[in-house]
């Protein structure tokens, strides 16, 4: 891995040799960035290597933990992922995608509307209302999980897709971000002009405001998706049916299966290869969508 980065660094520095970076000690910058890249990629590289090993290979393989074992088991692991417990692994991936996309979409819709409402309308109790939302960011999840579970049980909602999807709609940070973005980047004059032209409030929202809000909407959408994809604690409590598990809960169950005592079995190899595959969709999304992150967060965060 290290050499991959070294190569690209050399290549780039060669191409731009003698270019003008005013007053910047370039070598220092390169060194810092290369060290950082190595650091941030180290566990990822470990995961790539580990996913090619058998269970025994993980513990007793040759060439150490950072290099491939003599037995290459990647495809076997993938095959085993498809058959172990009737291929429930792929079901977990599908569930996670569903939770991330539907949950992300719902959370974004709710947040965008609320953020817009807070930024562009004056109404009674707004200040208190918004402050409570900010306070909500500070409440520990453990305080909510158990009562939520008990309340859900009362209405027969546990062990359903809704039990995971509906709580995801709650995204106070999204509201906060949208509110600031609307205040900063959406001129009141535009809305006022639309009103004067006789446009209704919803039409104004959809036709005038939404297009301008797109960068922030994308950011909130991405943030919600990541939140939903990483969601772990609540689903692990409200779900018992493995067919509904998201990948995080499924893999952690495999982990306890591998470490626990009596009558268990070791499936570390499935854990490592399963982890690798499960991070690929999100990593790709990050790489291809990264400019959207920067756009939305920029507008939202500069308000000083």
């Amino acid at each position: 891995m290290d050499w991959v980065i070294d190569m690209s660094a050399i290549e780039h520095s060669g191409k731009h040799a003698g270019s003008h970076i005013r007053g910047n000690p370039r070598v220092f910058t390169y060194v810092v960035l290369i060290v950082c890249c190595c650091y941030f990629l180290l566990p990822v590289w470990w995961l790539v290597v580990a996913s090619t090993k058998t269970n025994g290979g993980l513990f007793n393989g040759s060439h150490g933990s950072m290099w491939f074992d003599s037995t290459m088991a990647f495809w076997d692991n993938i095959k085993q992922l498809g058959t172990y417990q009737d291929g429930v692994y792929w079901r977990w991936i599908a569930n996670s995608l569903l939770y991330a996309l539907v949950g992300g979409f719902g959370a974004t819709t709710v947040s965008v509307m609320a953020g817009y409402g807070f930024a562009k309308y004056r109404f009674r109790g707004k200040k208190t209302y918004f402050n409570i939302i900010l306070g909500a960011l500070m409440i520990p999840a453990t305080a909510l999980v158990i009562p939520t579970f008990l309340l859900m049980s009362d209405i027969n909602m546990t062990d359903t897709y809704w039990a995971v999807l509906l709580p995801l709609m709650l995204n106070p940070f999204g509201v906060y971000l949208m509110r600031i973005y609307c205040s900063e980047s959406l001129p009141d004059e535009m809305i006022e002009a639309a009103r004067v032209d006789g446009s209704g409030e919803f039409r104004t929202f959809f036709q005038v405001s939404l297009p301008i809000m797109t960068p922030a909407i994308t950011t909130v959408f991405l943030l919600s998706i990541v939140g939903a994809w990483n969601n772990f604690f609540l689903p692990s409590v409200v779900l018992t049916n493995p067919n509904l598990f998201p990948i995080t809960v499924g893999l952690s169950q495999w982990q306890t299966r591998s470490t626990a005592g009596s009558a268990s079995e070791q499936i570390w190899n499935l854990l490592t290869s399963g982890s690798l595959i499960s991070v690929i969709p999100m990593v790709l999304a990050f790489i291809f969508l990264q400019r959207y992150w920067v756009g939305g967060l920029a507008a939202g965060s500069v308000k000083a």
């Binding site: 158990i146 579970f149 008990l150 049980s153 009362d154 027969n156 546990t158 062990d159 409590v237 018992t240 049916n241 493995p242 169950q253 306890t256 299966r257 626990a260 005592g261 009596s262 268990s264």
Partner: peptide
Amino acid sequence: WNNGGQGGAEYTRFQNTIKAGKG
């Protein structure tokens, strides 16, 4: 059949469902 979790994880779930009166 369902795998309700292993050891402590299963007991927790069991406790919760009894507390909730169903599940």
